[in-house]
Design a binder for these strands. Sequence first.
DNA 1: CTGAAAGCGCTTACAG
DNA 2: CTGAAAGCGCTTACAG
Lengths: 342, 342
Amino acid sequence: MKVDNPTSRDIAEIAGVSQATVSRALRNSPLVRKETRERVQQIARELNYFVNRNAAGLRTQQSNTIALLLFDETEGEDAQINPFFLSMLGYITRAASGLGYDVLISMQQLTDDWHIEYQASNRADGLILLGYGDYLTYHEKIEALARANTRFMIWGPIIDNQPGHSISCDNVDGGDQATRHLLGLGRQRIAFLGSTSQRSPELAARYDGYRKALLDAGLEPDDRLKVDAMSSEGEGYRAALDLLSRDVEFDAIFAVTDVIAIDAMRALEDNGYTIPDDIAVVGFDDISLAGHVTPALTTVRQDIRQAADGLVHGIVGLIEGEPVESTQMAPRLIVRASCGAL
Amino acid sequence: MKVDNPTSRDIAEIAGVSQATVSRALRNSPLVRKETRERVQQIARELNYFVNRNAAGLRTQQSNTIALLLFDETEGEDAQINPFFLSMLGYITRAASGLGYDVLISMQQLTDDWHIEYQASNRADGLILLGYGDYLTYHEKIEALARANTRFMIWGPIIDNQPGHSISCDNVDGGDQATRHLLGLGRQRIAFLGSTSQRSPELAARYDGYRKALLDAGLEPDDRLKVDAMSSEGEGYRAALDLLSRDVEFDAIFAVTDVIAIDAMRALEDNGYTIPDDIAVVGFDDISLAGHVTPALTTVRQDIRQAADGLVHGIVGLIEGEPVESTQMAPRLIVRASCGAL
DNA sequence: CTGAAAGCGCTTACAG
DNA sequence: CTGAAAGCGCTTACAG
């Protein structure tokens, strides 16, 4: 009764039914008599049989697989992936497996052109795109995906004229909350560290929120308090030094990502400033590091779990032909020590 | 000249050759005349054609996919995955894609029984297993995999009687290096935080290294300086408090993982101790957090990149029927501030 | 409720 | 160098 690599045909033979009936029984078809179904399933279990995914996929033209594409600007072989996306990955695979989908992962560089292949080759039924990329490059890729009728969900801002569906965080609101909080604690000279370029729309939106909060409080944004910084190692440090060298007074920093914020805190401390007494700092993302640095970083949290669930449900909806809407999630301020509120 | 979902047959028709020739041309077979080959490939490009993986896989009985199984003891929905494995994930996908393999990821709990399915269903040609699990449960799963003739590589210690191939770090040497370093700095009363149970062989091996270093230095290990701790949030804190409550003198801690070490540092600080002046601390793993905490954590680094490359080459070797050997990598001490050497 | 048959899109011996 | 043909293991209309 041992078969090496059992097929539905082997089971059919043992069960004394047709191969078609085996196929139906294994998929719990109501067309099969309960008794037959159970007998077939019992035999399948005994033989350690599993449906050949290639054969099933070829027949149904599906893969029951989602491809997760992680983009990262960081160049080089040693590139560390943004921890925020890495956490999302965990939740995405859980959500996907809950819906019966496998997750294929890929760390393509943005410049690679393999995105279309996943669906075209029947390796995946749809894609989830994760990563802060340069918007221009990104946009082009997305248009190509849309032209090829690829199904995809984007983690990122909703942008006019951009095809596809996305889930994002209300970054304007996040920047507003962070800045408003600092203002509420009496800080008046709040510096902004990060990018305001339209090439990174989500970061630019956080800046918009920062401006909004200041203007609402009757304060005029001061460009001397605005320092460009990318969200990679060392950038925040450099940006903070730049800020210090400008000889402009400031009592707080809103950094557009935690990575920048944490780096900046080091630079401030290395230059004799105390956080939050001299300078209050607020970040964005709530990466796991944020709660562990000293002082613990006040930041704006995006609900990763909710985002992952949304992306997975979205892509499965697209695959199954249901209507899917782009949505925006509410960010939440996590107050810790670095802002001086505790 | 636009075809919706082109097949090799469509290309054959356009090129005026047989479908078999198209298949050969696309795989760069030397059997096809160069001229023909290029014409076929040109048409394929124009049509945005990609080989249907299901069909090819069904025919060749391969998937060109590796399944990466991440185990985590942590219970519950919010379970964060060990950052060490998450980093490994990145390197594994890069190495795999370099060899033409896709990576399917799964975060099954150890208790689930789906491991065999990956290969049996032709979804993956082999598995890579990642995770510190309870050894007994783990061992049983591995035996089941071996019985099912599944190809797999394990990240973990090489254990007698255990089937399969593995890549691991020389944990005894790592524990020895860490302890020896503390001894070299004049610390004599070194506490050990972690598990010594044979259910976690790699952690037990680190303890063996700790003992070895002490004995080599003519010191007798003191069981009162040994505190059990798992490597999950809060455990190190608890363990350090336990240690303090024992009223035993100690001037250093070797923690079996960075997660425990960092937690323990918090507990010590909260109780008025200064690190490294009062207590020196050394961890293990070199997670990214380690370099960012204050004081920065001295730790033992396992070369993640090398491990990932080894695992991928190993599994591909097994898939392609080449001889594969289990190997052990050398760990390296990374000296930072927490041990008092700087 | 069940079976015989077609066909998904490839790869690869076999024949020329 | 090329083609005709078989067959990988399923799913699913079609017929009964």
